[in-house]
Design a protein around this nucleic acid. Structure first.
Lengths: 238, 238
DNA sequence: TAGATTGTTAATCGATTAACAATC
DNA sequence: TAGATTGTTAATCGATTAACAATC
């Protein structure tokens, strides 16, 4: 009996699709809050900011939860996506590094409302161990393993400076954490089987700057060409 | 004379490459800080967390800045990438929404060090207009257009609740801002020519939760199969 | 039945990767 | 020259899109 022989069919959902499922979930929640019971793929796609072909293709990886000629039942589809993502269950989370960003993350209401429960805030600085942030006391970083084991924490958030990120990641892995959300501006390496996602504020701004610069060049180039055309017209008179 | 006739060759850099250039820039800065003057594509790829084939392919879109048999001059390559991204120049930025996250963003040192200068903090709440955050006074949201025009702001950051995001985006566009970094958990629509990037904290966690859940299922499945095999062995004795 | 809309197919597009000729 | 490493090619892979048969 091999793992492959299991009765459960392992659907493989493309990574690009996985990344959009939470967007659909949020859009469905907004529709439900607006009292809408049924929607077409076109409606939902608009609410989620994608085109309807992509939405239908994405949903097709989960199953057939719509009705041809009718559309989707908002609550039903919402539940199916939530179940697929795993947000119908509770996910204990620890945040390491309680500076400005750590504070903001600890206070972020969007976590708790989606099943993420901040069970501990950790910081290496003893000065911070008096603090209570968002109702949770800040504890020494050394307590990580005990806390992670006690609460069966699977997800850790790194909000430390870049220099500490790898060490924190190593300790998280040692404590049995297998998913890491890294806000530190540093590349961290982890063993196979551990997932890391990276959010980098200054990288996002730099990507925008690149496009902004291209727009500026494009305008300058068009302007220069306009002047060229004008000069040519004037030159014709000379 | 058409725009296409311009002497400047418009290199098209793939979006996936653009998103990695800031990562390379940061890795090169780290190498330079460590006193390293020259590096191979393998060295830099390791520092950036990608494979060397991808790195070389990415750099090839910018030009030929390496030396075969030798590698890359760290400072030279760093300058070329910085120029390509546009971070050799100064980018005035406004942040709208000075809650927990807005505070953290205003205080984030990684912005200023990369040429992003926070010229104004704006908030709709009059209670906040007394505050000074990171040396910058919080001003009324109504001042957006005047400030944006005065400082030629091209990039705006939205750190408001979801409900205000579209309105803020509209006002930003009206004020001449053409790049928006949106932290609000909402889809915003903008006219053509305006770039939007979205950072969504809870979506990142949900993506991790999906993979975490799959790992848990995988383990449960393998365990079940193991038990199945054990039962089969026992069954053979019955 | 007629109209509407899904789920799927197939074509296209873009990104990744390995391999290696070019060349220092 | 011999060894090292880039820049490029070509193959592969994955994601997107349009179109439409299936079906409510």
């Amino acid at each position: 009996m091999t793992a492959r022989s299991s009765s459960e069919t392992t659907r493989v959902i493309p990574e690009a699709t996985v990344a959009r499922l939470p967007v659909y979930l949020r859009a469905l929640t907004a529709l439900a809050d607006a009292g809408i019971r049924t929607c077409s793929s076109e409606d939902l796609a608009t609410a989620a900011g994608v085109n309807s072909a992509k939405l239908r293709k994405d949903l097709s990886y989960l199953g057939s939860y719509g009705t041809r000629g009718v559309g989707y039942d908002v609550d039903y589809l919402r539940y199916q996506i939530a179940r697929e993502i795993g947000v119908t269950q509770d996910w204990p989370v620890v945040i390491v590094g309680i500076g400005n960003l750590g504070h903001a993350l600890a206070n972020y209401s969007g976590f708790r409302s989606r099943g993420f429960r901040v069970v501990a805030l950790l910081d290496a600085d003893p000065e911070r161990h008096e603090e209570i942030v968002a109702g949770v006391p800040v504890r020494p970083f050394a307590d990580l393993e005990a806390i992670a084991r006690e609460h069966a924490v699977a997800i850790g958030v790194i909000a430390t400076p870049a220099g500490s990120a790898q060490d924190v990641a190593d300790q998280m892995v040692a404590a049995g954490i297998t998913s890491i959300l890294n806000f530190a501006p540093a590349v961290i390496s982890v063993p196979d089987g551990v997932d890391v996602r990276k959010v980098d504020l200054s990288i996002e701004l730099q990507i925008l700057a690149y496009h902004e610069q291209r727009k500026a060049h494009e305008h300058a180039r068009v302007d220069a060409d306009d002047h060229g055309a004008a000069a040519l017209a004037v030159g014709g008179d000379a």
